[in-house]
């Protein structure tokens, strides 16, 4: 569906070198700190910035050969950009109708009613939650095959975030071929919706794993100095000095549970995995 290979973009104090793939029918998450390169990756994929190297293929077609018709199959929501705040939902409908051949008018109006988005109010006067929902509704209402969503849940409360993820789940259920590339720095959002997750740090992908595996096989070993010395470190990805000794990140929870029954093993959450991958030492 979407394949990025060694996408490069260099700025004065930042350089991106990213490879990732979104498969048919999958929701792929991109997670990382602020400034890790998520938005740069999205912008390069969407052709908003020019890449300094590498390739981006969407629907098997090189981004360079993309024409406006191809863009009709992509739905996009950006964190820092959207329709002019001086427009209303009522204004947006004819715009979308004229831009997308597959714009689903009844679906769009039904959803705006469902989420109580006012028709005549200027978007700039919407609440953060309303703006976020509108962005996602715009992205999903023209039967896109691929959604590219940059931080769609940023700044939302728990309820609004749940509602938004529900919209995305429904979008995926309607057609098995659809895919989503979504970024967030709220890991619980991604945990619930993504099939696989890429972790990006300082412009590079430092981890790619299926969400199930991440949640089932990744763990934190909390051990003292003595235990650390004796530990078989072949499945330790990162370790970090703590005041009680060491905490070690592994992707083979069962191995350590079986061979070291006396050490404390904590189920890894995505947040902990990120922290360890970034702060921990490679062993």
């Amino acid at each position: 569906m979407l394949k990025i290979e060694h996408l490069k973009k260099n700025y004065d104090n930042f350089s991106l070198n990213c490879s990732l793939e979104v498969h048919h029918g999958c929701v792929t998450g991109l997670i990382g700190q602020n400034g890790a390169g998520k938005s740069t990756t999205f912008k390069a994929v969407l052709g908003l910035i020019s890449a300094d190297g590498g390739s981006v293929r969407i629907f098997g077609k090189d981004l360079q050969e993309f024409v406006s018709e191809d863009r009709e199959n992509i739905g996009v929501a950006l964190s820092d950009s959207g329709f002019s705040g001086y427009l209303t939902v009522k204004d947006i409908i004819p715009i979308l109708k004229n831009l997308y051949r597959n714009f689903d008018y009844s679906f769009f109006t039904e959803q705006t009613r469902r989420f109580q988005l006012p028709f005549d109010k200027k978007i700039k006067d919407f609440s953060t939650g309303m703006k976020a929902k509108l962005k996602v509704l715009v992205a999903i209402s023209h039967k896109a095959k691929l959604l590219i969503l940059d931080e769609p849940t940023a700044g939302l409360d728990v309820i609004a975030r749940d509602e938004l993820l529900e919209i995305l789940r429904e979008f995926m259920e309607r057609d098995e071929e659809r895919s989503i590339l979504i970024s967030s720095h709220i890991s619980s959002d991604l945990e619930t919706i993504c099939d696989d997750i890429y972790m990006i740090h300082e412009g590079k992908v430092i981890l790619h794993e299926d969400t199930d595996v991440l949640l089932s096989d990744y763990a934190l070993l909390k051990i003292d100095e003595e235990q650390f010395k004796k530990l078989d470190k072949q499945f330790v990805l990162r370790s970090k000095k703590e005041n009680y000794g060491y905490s070690c990140l592994t992707n083979q929870k069962r191995y350590y549970a079986e061979n070291y029954p006396r050490i404390a093993i904590e189920k890894g959450t995505i947040d902990e995995v990120i922290t360890m991958m970034i702060r921990g030492q490679e062993s």
Binding site: K43, L46, G47, L48, S68, E69, R71, E72, I74, V76, L78, D80, S81, G82, F83, S84, G85, Y86, L99, Y100, I148
Partner: peptide, 16 residues
Amino acid sequence: YDEFDNGNAFLFTLPV
């Protein structure tokens, strides 16, 4: 208006 609030970024993700 298009440039305001980085609106152009979104505009060029549309089929334009």
